[in-house]
Write a protein that binds this DNA or RNA. Sequence first.
DNA 1: TCGGATGAAATTGTAGGATGATTTGATGGA
DNA 2: TCCATCAAATCATCCTACAATTTCATCCGA
Lengths: 240, 240
Amino acid sequence: MVQGSTDHSGQAESWRTDSSGNRLTGTQLAVAALREGIRKGRYVPGQRLVETDLVTEIGVGRNSLREAFAYLASEGLVQVEPHRGASIRRRTHTEVAQLYDLSEVLEGLAARLAAINITQPGNAESLTAAIDREHRDAAGGSANQRIDDAARLHETILAIADNPRLTELVTNLHILTFSFQLRHTRLDGAQDLGETSLAEHLAVVEAIRQADPQQAEIAMRTHIRSAKEQVTALPKDASG
Amino acid sequence: MVQGSTDHSGQAESWRTDSSGNRLTGTQLAVAALREGIRKGRYVPGQRLVETDLVTEIGVGRNSLREAFAYLASEGLVQVEPHRGASIRRRTHTEVAQLYDLSEVLEGLAARLAAINITQPGNAESLTAAIDREHRDAAGGSANQRIDDAARLHETILAIADNPRLTELVTNLHILTFSFQLRHTRLDGAQDLGETSLAEHLAVVEAIRQADPQQAEIAMRTHIRSAKEQVTALPKDASG
DNA sequence: TCGGATGAAATTGTAGGATGATTTGATGGA
DNA sequence: TCCATCAAATCATCCTACAATTTCATCCGA
């Protein structure tokens, strides 16, 4: 019944709780499992998500699983076709390029808001911490570390921007574009990507630090546009 | 079984099909019904959505209904709290202002893309049709007509922009902010809103017509920012 | 009277059965 | 080869059942 647990009495079941110890509903659990699975490549674009399989794999009922499908379909991560079921949504190069257009203006907004909020206590410090980490790992870190650092900087800016829905939307877009990159770049490619972005990150951070909303937005949009160009220039072998 | 239908044989059931005659799934039906209900004020912010009631009201099973809740929760239209159920999500003035920030950059993007695509066949014509209609009703139309006209212009620009996800997001935002305005403006207030926006619409349309992406984006952002200011200046009696 | 305990009612969360509908892939004949 | 037909897999939907949780009215004692 509950995912191969050896727990036959009614005990803790800690894997069903979130970081605060709150019980997760089956739907939340399934959403998290699917998101993680997509991020880690456990589920790849185009892959069918057969209900009966995932029910046993994730350990929730069919209802919860289908609710998770609906939720993720609304985000655009999963595609649901009547009587054909759910699958990880494929993206063509064109669609990914369009998502980058969204990222450009949304992250631009984030940078602008961050420049406005940078004077709030603690914000300048967390921004500094994020960019310092990038600086440090630019020399001695692994490719994965540099990717993580870059992601963390974007998250930090979003946090400072302090617009929850904006954070949600951008985070979704990151997952969508990231799962695309996974299929189209090799590790060395990702390294290049990280290298060129450090200078651009510095420009963004500097504008935010100087509490210059307009310049922050411009710098961020330039940064995303350059990322878009790198990605859309990738080989057009397959789509997903 | 199926919403008091008198149809006991296996006949048409036309209310379960979309504009193209395709059968709608129960989930799609419930999503559409809830969206419409929110738009028309049938369901108001804060209202609880009791499953057993809506099951009979909409005429779908509890599963389909709950999938619809999940879908709309991801959009932000509905709020789902464990063991307390779904409700139409309330928005504070602050949150609505934040949504307008999103609208500003997203619709700005739409205008920019429209200015790029305006040379495609048919696009200039549909844009002209939309703005002409606004012109005509500015003199003789009702307040509701003017509101519809304005909405249609935005839809037209989105269509020309030709970025499906962008269209989705902006449409969602329109519903969210519209349901807020419903509770905070009277009809005469809506009239004022329409009047001032005509000039701004003209500026946007003119920039798109001249295939000037940069100016189109600026004009649209100015327009949305002005709408935001009008709305956030509304009385802060209740939230939702 | 006030505040907290208590217990019943309402509602949601979850699992899973049953059945019809639809897609998909295989098979066989023209 | 191409198309009709059939069987299997899978989904869509509604249903029942019961556990879990919240909500709310009621009662009791200070």
